[in-house]
């Protein structure tokens, strides 16, 4: 509480109330007074994140019907984060002093934005691989050898399908949708879980080296590919 003697003209209140009814914080700093670049080098505590993330999983796990449902909920938690990060990182990524000027309009530039800029901002390093699926032109895969979100998560045997990186998949989905690249789904999968298929060839050795390797499968909607094709022809 401010002492009444120091500010005789202003009524002493914990919150100043403007004529419009707007309540300002005591330090008079609204979100508009904060610098968007402030946290560029400030990393957050990993332990604090792990604690929070476990609570988030706990919250998502209430009254779920199955693993798919749980992953869907984790996905939904990450989605709004992706929408926000897209604009935040675009406004940050340009060279300091230079205002933001570009946005991703092509598939490849969007995917590169995700694997480098987004991954670096979230995890401090770029993603380990970006591949286009051989099976379908609409599918892209981003692999992460050791997802940060799974560092302190050990999945019980009966839920071995569950990958909590579904949260990160939700973030990726938010970025894609926000940028105007509608996705059918973005999902997180363990590699080496399925028998046979393309991943199984080197899967044995990979599995030993990176037991937590996760692949994010992005399925784009049909109209995105059609637009991409048209843009490709125009050039």
């Amino acid at each position: 509480m401010a002492s009444p003697a120091s500010t005789p003209s202003v009524p002493s209140q914990a919150l100043r109330i403007a004529p419009s009814g707007l309540r300002y914080p005591t330090n008079k700093k609204t979100i508009y007074d904060r610098n968007l670049n402030r946290t560029r080098n400030a990393e957050l505590s990993r332990a604090a994140f792990a604690f929070l993330f476990i609570e988030m999983i706990n919250y998502a796990q209430r009254q779920v019907k199955g693993i798919t449902d749980l992953e869907k909920r984790l996905n939904n938690q990450g989605y709004p984060l992706g929408l926000k990060l897209l604009d935040l990182l675009l406004s940050r990524s340009s060279t300091p002093g230079q205002p933001p000027t570009t946005r991703p309009t092509r598939l490849l530039s969007l995917l590169q934005f995700i694997t480098t800029t987004l991954w670096k901002a979230l995890f401090g390093r770029p993603a380990d691989a970006l591949e286009r699926s051989a099976a379908s032109p609409a599918e892209y895969m981003i692999s992460d050898n050791e997802p940060l979100v799974n560092t302190f998560v050990s999945v019980p045997r009966e839920m071995s399908q569950l990958n909590c990186a579904a949260y990160v998949a939700g973030v990726v989905e938010g970025v894609c949708d926000g940028a105007g690249f509608r996705t059918v789904s973005v999902s997180a999968h363990w590699t080496g879980n399925e028998d046979g298929g393309s991943g199984a060839a080197g899967g044995g050795r990979e599995k030993v080296m990176w037991p937590g390797k996760t692949v994010f499968l992005i399925r784009f909607a049909k109209e995105v590919l059609e637009r991409e094709e048209m843009l490709g022809k125009a050039l």
């Binding site: 979100i31 508009y32 904060r34 968007l36 929408l83 926000k84 604009d87 935040l88 406004s91 205002p99």
Partner: peptide
């Protein structure tokens, strides 16, 4: 526009 964009990003950070 850039000045408004800066404020806009702060808005959507809410």
């Amino acid at each position: 526009f850039l000045e408004v964009y800066d404020a806009w990003v702060k808005t959507i950070m809410n």
